[in-house]
Nucleic acid binder design. Structure first.
Lengths: 202, 202
DNA sequence: CGATTTCAGTACCGATCGGTACTGAACTTT
DNA sequence: AAAGTTCAGTACCGATCGGTACTGAAATCG
């Protein structure tokens, strides 16, 4: 593919692959996997179909790369939240981050990990499965964090880390759907606050 | 179209339109609007493309009809919940209904109103807009019910019916996403219970 | 410079998309 | 039975789908 180390032979790429990927992420975010045609993608990325295939492989791999970029970019609040000192702070940071990312004026409303391929036909099945795994992964990480919180005495003994993680993830996904329905940031923040008014919830 | 009153002239329809619509609903539910091709739909409905167009108009109108059927069928728990005597009972019935409908073994996991067209390209925009309105309508009805509960003294004076409705709808949408991710009914019911452990939440 | 390598773009691939004209059979009415 | 009407199916429409072969230019190397 690209050369070995710094010595690259042949004509160098004429576009910024990172910037192109960013644009592709935004298109998938807004239109979903099946709703984003190659024409939509490449015209927004500012490159031709040929260049896209050379740089990213195919549509499905482009989606995977775009999801990685989403995870490291707009959704980075997720991993950051895990490093909060208490379980309550983790949940608060997670939901606050969800509210802000799903309602950024310069980005599509909602969450790519939710609306990218929540339901799909045959052509979208790979993307659908990738996102199911993505969402469940996030829940698993949250569960592990809460498990540690129980061990630390931060959460009451006997607390189900799994149930607590499911609860927080459920609220987060719900916030994402509401954002996609046009509900504004301020109101969603109130919902997030309400969801954490009592902690742990049960 | 069809005849006037009981006297129908010409050859009668050779298939059960209601049953065909039911099948179409299931396909849209599972695959989403854009992910459901006419081939997918008509082959499952057991009729030809011609019959589908004659009976339902086009794909978009078929989707609207399927959504109506969904509202009156699997999602009928929504209107039923509004008739519960107290706000808490309303919220409980609504979330319990959501859990059961999104995890019915004989139906696709999740909620048609959420995953039917959460994100869409140009072709899916009409369906997307219909579902946004569908979701916001449900929230509005819940808000009106809570407003009445405040007037009845069932909810504390000064309670924001709007915020409370947003909260319940958010949890419901989140449950639908979790169901679409494969989370089982029992665990989702625990989440629903946790979300209502303190009422009103804030 | 010349050779080599990779670029980006055009043109095209078969398949499928949503939707429709047309046909002949099936059915109801008179 | 004859006339009238609507059925369901075939075959097809232009457009677009995701993906690829091929071309000529551009950049880096010896």
């Amino acid at each position: 593919m690209t050369g070995h180390g710094n010595t690259v032979v042949g004509r160098p790429r004429g576009f910024d692959a990172d910037e192109a990927l960013q644009q592709a992420m935004l298109v998938f975010w807004k239109q979903g996997y099946e709703g984003a045609s190659l024409s939509d993608l490449t015209s927004t990325m500012g490159i031709t179909k040929t260049s896209m295939y050379a740089a990213f492989g195919n549509k499905e791999q482009l989606f995977r790369k775009a999801l990685e970029r989403y995870t490291d970019g707009p959704a980075a609040y997720g991993l950051r939240a895990m490093r909060e000192p208490t379980a309550r702070a983790v949940a608060t940071a997670f939901l606050n981050g969800t509210v802000r990312t799903t309602t950024r004026p310069e980005c599509p409303a909602g969450c790519l990990g939710v609306q990218g391929a929540l339901a799909a036909g045959d052509a979208g099945t790979p993307a659908h499965d990738v996102l199911v795994e993505w969402r469940n992964d996030a829940g698993r990480r949250l569960e592990e964090r809460f498990l540690r919180a129980v061990a630390d005495g931060d959460l009451p003994e006997g607390t189900s880390a799994r149930r607590l993680a499911l609860y927080v993830m459920t609220v987060a996904f719900g916030l994402a759907v509401q954002a996609a329905s046009g509900v504004g940031r301020a109101e969603l923040q109130e919902v997030a606050d309400a969801a954490l008014a009592t902690w742990p919830p049960a």
